[in-house]
Simulated assay, not measured.
Amino acid sequence: MQIAPPAILTSLVKHFLVLENDSPAQQHHRLSPDGHAGMVFYYKARFSAFSNTGPVHPRSFVYGQISQFHDLASGGAIGMLVVVLQPYALQTLTGILAHTFTDQLISLPDIFGAAGSQLEEKIVLAENDQQRLQLIQHFLIHKLQQHPAAGRLLTAAMAHIQQQHGLMQVGQLIQTLHISERQLERQFRAHVGLTPKQFLRTMRFQYLLKCIQQTPEASLTQLAYETGYYDQAHFIHEFKQLAGITPTQYLTQTRLLAINFMQLPA
């Protein structure tokens, strides 16, 4: 279930997600890059990394941008609330440079100390999703008042990239924003956690996934061409790098919980 944030949080939060699965059986999932960092709060069983013998996720954590797919395993009924942040919001939330979090997850108590521990405990004790959302929103509003939001340059860059669905070159972005490549790179590392080139690659991939979902009758070759993948071999190679499977397998062998979060066959 996807939930829009209140107006006061739209500069920080893209949306909230509530994900639940009551199956007690072990299941495998895969998370692909989507251009967003976020926060996760578990209130039932937790995912572990890669297999049921891998390290179990903290009860709550902040995760950074991911540059490749990540595999997860669950061994019980999962209940989690995810805060999907705006691409440039991680430093505003934490006061820490965004590239510190790239391909990492860090527990809330490790970042926010006692305030993180208290929020984590309240989420576990909350009786329903509405209570959990209220607790998290109150916490985020407080953090928004503590750290400055991303500047106009970065928000303008994001607006332009999203308008073009990532189908552009870094040079075009530099020309549009009238800044140097070094300035742009520094802003992206600090606030997004990826280089501009990496972020454009991720956004183009996300646009491709949306096109696949919205026009399932279209051929993959046609969709690849329309989303800027002009070489079939490059298209398949990049898809496998970011999703871990081929485009055909994505269509036929997965159950999507979100556009970039899939349940893999047993």
Rank of each mutant, 00 (worst) to 15 (best):
residue 138 H to Y: 05
residue 215 T to K: 13
residue 229 Y to S: 01
residue 212 I to M: 15
residue 185 E to S: 14
residue 149 A to F: 00
residue 123 I to V: 14
residue 229 Y to W: 10
residue 93 L to C: 10
residue 159 A to N: 15
residue 192 V to P: 10
residue 231 D to R: 10
residue 48 S to I: 05
residue 177 L to F: 05
residue 128 N to C: 11
residue 187 Q to K: 07
residue 241 Q to V: 05
residue 54 G to I: 08
residue 66 I to R: 06
residue 39 M to P: 00
residue 149 A to R: 06
residue 257 L to T: 07
residue 210 K to H: 11
residue 232 Q to N: 09
residue 222 Q to A: 12
residue 103 D to E: 07
residue 199 F to M: 07
residue 74 S to V: 11
residue 58 P to I: 03
residue 184 L to E: 09
residue 249 Q to P: 09
residue 92 T to E: 12
residue 8 I to H: 13
residue 202 T to G: 02
residue 84 V to L: 05
residue 177 L to M: 05
residue 42 Y to Q: 03
residue 59 R to D: 03
residue 161 I to W: 05
residue 183 Q to H: 14
residue 223 L to G: 07
residue 215 T to R: 15
residue 53 T to P: 02
residue 102 T to I: 06
residue 124 V to D: 06
residue 177 L to K: 05
residue 116 G to T: 04
residue 227 T to K: 05
residue 260 N to K: 00
residue 115 A to P: 01
residue 156 A to I: 03
residue 177 L to E: 04
residue 154 L to Y: 02
residue 181 E to M: 13
residue 26 Q to E: 15
residue 98 A to K: 00
residue 84 V to F: 00
residue 42 Y to K: 01
residue 201 R to T: 11
residue 66 I to F: 01
residue 87 P to R: 03
residue 206 Q to P: 04
residue 156 A to L: 12
residue 30 R to T: 03
residue 252 T to L: 14
residue 256 L to F: 09
residue 93 L to I: 09
residue 101 F to V: 00
residue 64 G to Y: 00
residue 82 V to T: 13
residue 120 E to W: 00
residue 74 S to M: 11
residue 170 V to A: 13
residue 169 Q to P: 04
residue 90 L to Y: 04
residue 125 L to A: 13
residue 242 L to Q: 02
residue 22 D to R: 09
residue 214 Q to T: 13
residue 94 T to R: 00
residue 62 V to F: 02
residue 149 A to S: 09
residue 214 Q to Y: 10
residue 100 T to N: 12
residue 142 H to E: 14
residue 189 R to T: 08
residue 99 H to Y: 12
residue 228 G to C: 07
residue 162 Q to V: 05
residue 104 Q to P: 04
residue 25 A to L: 14
residue 180 S to D: 12
residue 214 Q to I: 06
residue 233 A to N: 11
residue 180 S to W: 09
residue 217 E to N: 12
residue 163 Q to V: 03
residue 8 I to D: 15
residue 184 L to R: 07
residue 265 P to G: 06
residue 159 A to I: 08
residue 224 A to L: 06
residue 251 L to P: 01
residue 67 S to Q: 11
residue 42 Y to T: 02
residue 92 T to F: 00
residue 91 Q to Y: 06
residue 79 G to I: 05
residue 238 E to K: 09
residue 206 Q to R: 14
residue 167 L to I: 13
residue 36 H to P: 03
residue 72 L to R: 08
residue 143 K to I: 04
residue 14 K to P: 01
residue 242 L to M: 10
residue 30 R to G: 02
residue 234 H to I: 12
residue 160 H to R: 14
residue 53 T to E: 15
